[in-house]
Nucleic acid binder design. Structure first.
Lengths: 124, 124
DNA sequence: CAGAATCCGGGCCGATACTG
DNA sequence: CAGTATCGGCCCGGATTCTG
């Protein structure tokens, strides 16, 4: 049996390489609701640093997921928007987010149970 | 406007914390097709080290995504299987993988175009 | 406003060796 | 077979400073 005949796991690796880092997925979700300026994103995505926002946007732009438009204004104005490529990935991403919201209690309970078991083993 | 009224991006963070690392998603996909023993997984998931497989499985188990069963045999026999929690996440994951496969050419083209632009700027 | 440049610490992960 | 333990490199990402 081949390890991955249909390339499923390989494809998963690719997705995670694109948007599996700390911030990219959140940037995508934000842009999914409409174009945003740099500082808007910085304010909306809580905890992101300027550096990381820049790097994330650059990487997304490079892979064709984000369109960057510079308007020759002063002060400078740059807008980020989705590309057609993104629009198809937003849905699976939101499915994942939905799963997370639904499963939050179950995950928390599993974690407590596991940690309790570990604690019981440790003190025995 | 609240940053994330429905908790979408927060939920995304949680998912990525669970399965966003280098190997967990692949482990899940493997287990999605049926229970596996430790060494089976190690062989099937190309490139994974014993240490990383152990850590990934432990983490997945802790969060209630994987069930670990030890059979009192000699030599030892341990089986890993999905939990009901997993079964609902597999589908969105495969949707992501499908997207990756469909979008591979577009992403590659975008990357080439971007890199060419950078190259042109650099040598100008 | 929208970045670029630099420094730096933590942890992710691989390699290797050892065990019941 | 199914792990654990330890060491070490690398890179992700945060803080800070500077710029057009």
């Amino acid at each position: 049996m081949a390890a991955d005949p249909s390339g499923e796991t390989c494809a998963l690796r690719e997705v995670l390489a694109l948007i599996g880092d700390k911030w990219s997925a959140q940037v995508l979700v934000q842009l999914g609701t409409g174009p945003r300026r740099f500082t808007e994103l910085e304010r909306t995505i809580e905890g992101i640093s300027r550096r990381m926002l820049t790097l994330s946007l650059r990487n997304l732009e490079r892979n064709g997921l984000v369109l960057r438009t510079v308007y020759p204004d002063s002060p400078p104005r740059v807008e980020y928007a989705t590309t057609p490529l993104i629009e198809e990935i937003i849905e699976p991403l939101e499915a994942l987010a939905d799963w997370a919201k639904r499963s939050r209690p179950a995950v928390a309970a599993a974690r407590r149970a596991y940690d309790d078991r570990q604690f019981a083993v440790a003190r025995q």
